[in-house]
């Protein structure tokens, strides 16, 4: 649920705001609902990876990739796959780190004492 929400809201925000807005939604959602550090990171990482990859690939397909080829040549021939990989990783790292930060900031501001059941779960 968080994951799907993150993709949808993030897409909307990024349509209207500059590129750095990619960090907003992962941060906010994990600050609100994040369950653990690793989960928050993974959520942000995968959601943004999927979003950036999907969008980039869609644009590439729409045009027949004339521009992708020219850009690839400017970047020493890294190719469409190289460009898609670079794009996906940039987005993913940003999304993941933002999401993790969101969770950790909430933890720092409103430290939540785990219930005994959760403690036990963590222990085992």
């Amino acid at each position: 649920m968080q994951f799907v929400l993150m993709i949808l809201l993030s897409a909307m925000v990024q349509y209207f705001l500059p590129w750095w807005s990619v960090v907003i939604i992962p941060f906010l959602i994990s600050a609100w609902k994040g369950k653990s550090g690793s989960k928050a990171f993974l959520n942000g990482f995968l959601a943004t990876a999927l979003l950036w990859f999907g969008m980039a690939y869609y644009e590439h397909l729409r045009s027949g990739g004339i521009l992708t080829d020219r850009i690839s040549e400017l970047f020493r021939g890294i190719g469409t796959i190289g460009l898609l990989t670079a794009t996906t990783w940039s987005g993913a790292l940003l999304g993941g780190m933002a999401s993790l930060s969101g969770y950790l900031v909430r933890q720092a501001v409103f430290p939540k004492n785990p219930s005994p059941a959760e403690k036990a779960q963590a222990y085992w």
């Binding site: 590129w19 950036w52 980039a56 869609y58 045009s63 460009l83 670079a86 794009t87 987005g91």
Partner: peptide, 18 residues
């Protein structure tokens, strides 16, 4: 600057639009 350039929402990908 790679962030703005690679972002599929604002970067070069959106210039692909025929």
């Amino acid at each position: 600057a790679l962030g703005a350039f690679l972002s599929p929402f604002s970067g070069f990908w959106s210039n692909e639009r025929r």
